[in-house]
Write a protein that binds this DNA or RNA. Structure first.
Lengths: 187, 187
DNA sequence: CCAGCCATGTAACGGGTTACATGATTTA
DNA sequence: TAAATCATGTAACCCGTTACATGGCTGG
């Protein structure tokens, strides 16, 4: 099983509709999990059938009705059981790294282009994480928040995501500079 | 398509049998790709059918015969085409992060235990990467090797893997200390 | 003598991705 | 008036994981 626990963990922050969850999985959770809306709707239906979450209909007049979900006690128990089962390090599957692995037998030009794009994207993500971290800790400084805040889980995963993207950025920039220096482009 | 390019990139280092590849995918490539032997045998068969790799039988007397594979020109062309197609950042799926996301609504004890295990595993992996980096660059220092070495691809991906595991370790240790301080264990 | 390594697969299953489908409301 | 947002799904497909299967040689 896989996505189910990520969904349960996400729902701990409050009520969400499938659509809102999809947004969350596109930003805040995207550092360690990602899912397209279709997958989320399917998973929510499954979790509800199993009684791990409960949905309630919300009628709206200006836009389509929606269903909001919350984690049930059974859902919490499921999460507790999940933390008790040993987790394997996940296998990262990164196309860009495959390209770099092969780069010295190929024309580096397109790889360099992709590295530059990725560096920019990573920098943008770092800023997103920074904003989210500031929002999560409110007026408190980080140290105080981590010592006394009452919902530090999302903050901690955000910190990990931020580090990852920062490293990503630096690595992409380093490799770009290096490949440039080794194979100077014409013009 | 997915694994195919990782296999092609791995085969650039020389001839490999399915079994040897499986080893490689367990160590050197494991920072950005992972595959079990069964998957590799299937993928190698497919790549050979498509003419992207060529296999040759090697008869052995002390142990079972094996087939060694090399990338063909068509395979190189496939890799070149691959570098030209835009790559999306991969979705990381990390159970341990899901657990931390949920940790302040659950008993942190098992999560702390897992974080500690992971920190140790990450530290071990950093050392493996260090050894591999030393092996790859031979007697050269890093700067010289990166400027003049003729096969820097694997070195660069290794560097990324090392950074990742180092960050992983530091994060795990930080979170462990934090959760410990917030919820002191009895005894 | 048993565990582990070398060596290569088949088969079933589960989960994730892509494509397709619908339709109202708000913003540019 | 076109695009984006809100809102929810179905269906087909591909890929990856797990379980099962075989068999000889080497080292403790």
């Amino acid at each position: 099983m896989a996505l189910r626990h990520a969904v349960l963990a996400a729902l701990l922050d409050g009520e969400y509709s499938g659509y809102q969850l999809a947004k969350a999985f596109d930003v805040s959770l995207s550092n360690f999990w990602y899912a397209v809306p279709q997958q989320l709707y399917a998973e929510l239906a499954k979790l509800e059938r199993e009684g791990l979450i409960a949905g309630r209909q919300v009628i709206q007049h200006d836009r389509p009705n929606k269903r909001l979900f919350t984690v049930t006690d059974a859902g919490l128990a499921e999460l507790a059981a999940f933390t008790a089962t040993p987790s394997k390090p996940s296998s990262i599957r990164e196309d860009l790294l495959v390209m770099v692995q092969a780069v010295d037998r190929l024309d580096p030009t397109p790889v360099i282009a992709q590295l530059e794009e990725r560096a920019v994207a990573a920098a943008a993500k770092v800023e997103i994480f920074d904003r989210m971290l500031r929002r999560l800790r409110g007026e408190l400084d980080e140290e105080t928040f981590l010592r006394e805040g009452d919902r530090i889980g999302p903050y901690l995963t955000c910190l990990r995501g931020r580090r990852f993207e920062q490293e990503n950025r630096e690595w992409c920039e380093q490799v770009t500079a290096l490949l440039r220096a080794r194979a100077p482009l014409p013009g």
